[in-house]
Amino acid sequence: MDTLLGDDILDMIEIKNLGFSYQEDGVALSDVSFNVEKGEWLTILGHNGSGKSTLSKLLVGLLRPSSGTITVDGQVLGEESVYDIRKKIGIVFQNPDNQFVGVTVKDDIAFGLENLQIPRDEMVKRIDEYANRVDMADFLEKEPQALSGGQKQRVAIAGILAMKTDVIIFDEATSMLDPKGRKTILKYIQKLNEEGVTVITITHDMRESVLSDRILVLKNGEVLKIGPTKDILLDKETLESSNLELLLPLEVMHTLEQKNITHPKLKEFLWQLSLNT
C-alpha cells in the first residue's frame, strides 16, 4: 500500500544520525539512529557518561542537536515544532527535588496543565483523576517537604499523565529512591505502558529493563547494540564492555553453560527468576 495516512505511522519516535557536542567536553553523542514504535517500551542502558541523559534532553528539545534529526509522531523536532512536541513527550527526571515546582501537590500537578491552557473545570477533574492514579489523592494539599522521594516522583508522574502525553521518558527516575519507592514507580511504569503509553526508561539498573520490549545499549555516545530485551539481557560481552552487569540469575546461567553443566529445567527457572527482580 502506498497511501500515506497519519494513522499508518508505526513509529512514535524516529531518530536519524543524531549527534551532539558540548562546547567544553566535546562529543557526547555521535551518529545515533533508532526508532521507538507506538506503545513500545524501550530501555536505554548506558554507563555514566555514555550520553544517555544528553539523549533524553535532545528528545524533549532542551538541547538542540549538532547534527541529525528527531521525528516525533511524524513531526520533525525543530524550533517551531518544539512546543507541539512537548505536548507529546513528558519526562520524569532523576532528582525528585529538582522537579517539584508547585507549593502543594495540587499546584505541582496543575503546573503543566496551566501551560497547556486547559480550562479550569477540566483541570480540576484531571488533577483528581491522576493524583488518584498514583495513589497521592490524600496528599493534594501537602507541601513537598512533607513527602518522601518516591512520593515526589509519583507527583511528577501524575503531572505528566495529566497532560496526556503519548510518550513518557523516565531518566534514571528511580535511582535516588529507596527499594520500596523504586518498586512502586516501576509498577506505575508497567501499568502505563500496558495502557498504551510509549515508554522510554533510561537507566544503568538492569532490574529496570527486564519488563521492556527492547534494549538499546549506549557506549561512549554511540549505539553499541539494540535488540529484543531477552537477547541483550543475556549478552554478557556487550553489557560488561559498557560497565554494566548481567542480572545475577543470568550470570549463573552463563557460568554454568561455560562449564558445560546442564540441569533439566534450571535454565528456564533462572530466566524466570531474572524477570522477577
Binding site: 548506558g46 554507563h47 555514566n48 532523576q94 534514571e172 535511582s175 535516588m176 544503568h204 538492569m206 560497565n243 554494566l244 552487569e245
Partner: peptide, 8 residues
C-alpha cells in the same frame, strides 16, 4: 554509590 553504574 547512588547514581553510579555497576562498574563504578
Amino acid at each position: 554509590t547512588s547514581g553510579l553504574d555497576p562498574r563504578g
